[in-house]
Design a protein around this nucleic acid. Structure first.
Lengths: 204, 204
DNA sequence: ATTCTATTTGACTAAATAGTAAACTAAAAC
DNA sequence: GTTTTAGTTTACTATTTAGTCAAATAGAAT
């Protein structure tokens, strides 16, 4: 079966970082290859365009991220505790990224999605699909919270869309302002959307 | 004083449209010139870079947009009515853009801001400045609503940040999904953040 | 009418970029 | 150890792109 290679993985890691720390449109194939330490011929051996690579890269990144969310949103935890842990987790992740790259990066899906929405249909669809899965964590949590009488949310899916939009908006603000403190407002905002008063949250 | 020119305005209009319907990174100076019907020499006569042009363009667009918001958020209206009108206004605007360009475009500030945040400092700062002004409409409205006893929001500025982040997040979703219906959830989401129950809103 | 000046034009350079192809190489399979 | 196959490299072409400049021009001011 010939020789084996990790060039594919290196290219995916490189493009993920470049898009996240910069933007899709401004990263070139030459740049990707250089950061990955891979020659352009090899790039075209594995992928046929930047869009294809980016698509596979975000899917791989999602598969790495997913188990972390599984842990944070474990159904064994009380619903409002999951929310709390998610906000804390997200804050810590962004702190780490900030340390590593010197800038608040926000959500890569949202940044990439808004940028390519009108231009790269296949890529944008992949972003949407991951967002759909991502939103499900909120949906399940909200449904559980409603069932437990902690919140009033008869339409958990609709409420999840709202909470998700808010969290994405907040991350966008954090990126634009390059300000980690923005994340400190996330939990309260989500609880407001869920109609949880300040005292109730503490009592849970 | 020599001859007069509208090339500057044409260039600003062109770049605004190209960024909004596409992205900052993917629009080239040649494209801008072509759409504006202006030769590249003239571009460099008026501006020294794409970033400079984009900066002036968004400022000009904001000055055009501002009076519309002044009308929507008129202090002569009941606070929750202003919110209602804003959501309706935003929906109508996006419908019109969708008709004109064949795609949901969302908020140009947020799209541009997240894209250039790590790359074009001066431009990003202009985005931030306009966002700050934009958010003030919410802040004033929320303060008035609190004073009128319609909502409980002792920290109007904080609440405005939350509402603003949510509205930006929702517009990002609308752009990514290319779905105008997303806007129909905006008012309820904002009222949820403000703690206004469904009945109360109608009663105002 | 003439002058003056703000603006326009087109032709140019240099660099960056996407994409190709054929020769080359390492290592797996036998 | 030979063959086979997967992956790598290098050198290349053709475009696109940013940015420059000197000459031309239109029209405002006088």
């Amino acid at each position: 079966m010939g020789r084996v290679s990790d060039a594919k993985e290196k290219l995916m890691k490189a493009v993920t970082e470049l898009i996240w720390t910069g933007s899709y449109g401004s990263t070139t194939i030459d740049q990707i290859c250089e950061r990955a330490g891979v020659k352009k011929g090899s790039f075209y051996y594995f992928f046929d365009s930047k869009a294809t690579l980016a698509g596979e890269a975000i899917e791989a990144a999602w598969e790495e991220y997913r188990p972390k969310l599984d842990k944070v949103f474990s159904p064994s935890l009380a619903p409002l505790d999951r929310i709390h842990r998610f906000c804390e987790f997200e804050y810590q992740e962004q702190c780490e990224l900030h340390r590593q790259f010197g800038h608040v990066l926000g959500c890569p899906l949202c940044t990439l999605g808004t940028e390519v929405s009108t231009q790269e249909d296949a890529l944008c669809r992949k972003v949407q699909a991951i967002m759909d899965q991502s939103r499900k964590y909120f949906e399940t949590t909200i449904r559980d919270a409603h069932a437990a009488g902690l919140v009033y949310a008869p339409d958990a899916a609709a409420k999840a869309r709202t909470v998700y939009a808010y969290s994405e908006g907040l991350m966008a603000q954090a990126r634009i302002r390059n300000d980690l403190q923005v994340f400190r407002e996330m939990e309260r905002g989500i609880l407001d959307l869920l109609g949880v008063k300040e005292r109730e949250a503490l009592a849970t």
